[in-house]
């Protein structure tokens, strides 16, 4: 019984970590589906979101929820501007040129964040820090982990309704399926793409703020983006539910590897899972294969 509860807690911790990976992966997938660009700076967008939240809540002493909303808005605006100013110009260049471009952007963001907020780890108090939720039967979980899972579920529901019910969401789906046809239908494709960048940046800001109770904010937290890659690839890099499922699989595997395998294997887990998935299913778990006609 005791062992069972411990395993359950391990699984919940893994799910919470996995939700964060999944949210960052969701950012990759949204951008990839729409513009076929792979944003290697997604982890750095998350880092910026965390620092915005820290500025509003930790430094200026705003209410947590107000700061949360403002951080999302600020990061989303930043994402919009990033697409409008930089990434729109490289349309038509090979895919890996964009990969290098976003890697370069990641360097810049990290250096700028270091110059503005410093290189020390910071954090701020949230309503969920150091509180526990008792589910009875000896199952005691940190509210921080529960808040991550609940937050992810809410965000996913909002995104689902947005993409399937609102005109803008449907316009976004249309533009990612066929840019030209969407353009002929009167959808301002370029603005829509920038808005997708904004949503993707906003989602990573949510991930960042949800992560605050369990992890410190520092300049290098964008490294987490590489684990989110494993999640996105696992889910087929084009599938939104796939990204979340992939994230949770990576998170849980990591926790169990850290518990049952020798030290050091935790850092390797996500990469090994990633390679294994790519070797066995080169298109990911939820991917689809389409061949070109010549």
């Amino acid at each position: 019984m005791d062992e069972l509860v411990r395993l359950l807690q391990l699984a919940i911790n893994g799910t919470a970590a996995g939700c964060i990976y999944g949210l960052v992966a969701l950012g990759f997938v949204l951008i990839y589906k729409a513009t076929e660009m792979v944003n290697f700076a997604q982890g750095e967008l998350m880092m910026l979101g965390a620092f915005f939240a820290y500025t509003f809540v930790g430094m200026w002493g705003m209410n947590y929820w107000v700061g949360f909303a403002l951080a999302i808005a600020a990061t989303a605006a930043f994402g919009y501007a990033l697409d409008a100013v930089v990434l729109r110009r490289v349309i038509g260049q090979p895919q890996f040129a964009v990969v290098m471009l976003t890697l370069g952007l990641a360097f810049i963001f990290r250096a700028v964040a270091g110059a503005v907020w410093g290189y020390d780890s910071v954090g701020f108090l949230t309503p969920f820090t150091n509180k526990v939720a008792d589910f009875g039967g000896g199952v005691i979980l940190g509210q921080d982990n529960v808040s991550i899972i609940v937050g992810t579920v809410i965000l996913c529901a909002v995104l689902y309704v947005f993409f399937s019910r609102t005109p803008l969401g449907i316009a976004m789906q249309a533009s990612s399926q066929n840019q030209l046809a969407a353009y002929y239908m009167g959808i301002p494709v370029r603005t829509v793409f920038s808005l997708i960048w904004a949503i993707s940046a906003g989602v990573s800001a949510v991930a960042a703020v949800l992560l605050v109770p369990v992890s410190m904010i520092d300049v290098n937290m964008g490294i987490l983006g590489f684990k989110a890659f494993a999640a996105a690839v696992l889910g087929g890099f084009g599938s939104i539910p796939g990204a979340l499922v992939g994230g949770i699989i990576v998170g849980i595997t990591e926790q169990f590897a850290g518990r049952f395998l020798p030290a050091g294997s935790m850092e390797l887990t996500s990469n090994i899972v990633l390679l294994a998935v790519l070797i066995v299913w080169p298109q990911g778990l939820f991917g689809q294969v389409i061949r070109k006609r010549v």
Partner: peptide, 21 residues
């Protein structure tokens, strides 16, 4: 600034890809 080198590295990479592929 401690991050001068990586940021210059990034800026040059970004500018080269944008303006001189």
């Amino acid at each position: 600034l401690p991050g001068l080198e990586p940021s210059l590295f990034g800026i040059i990479l970004v500018l080269v890809i944008m303006f001189e592929p």
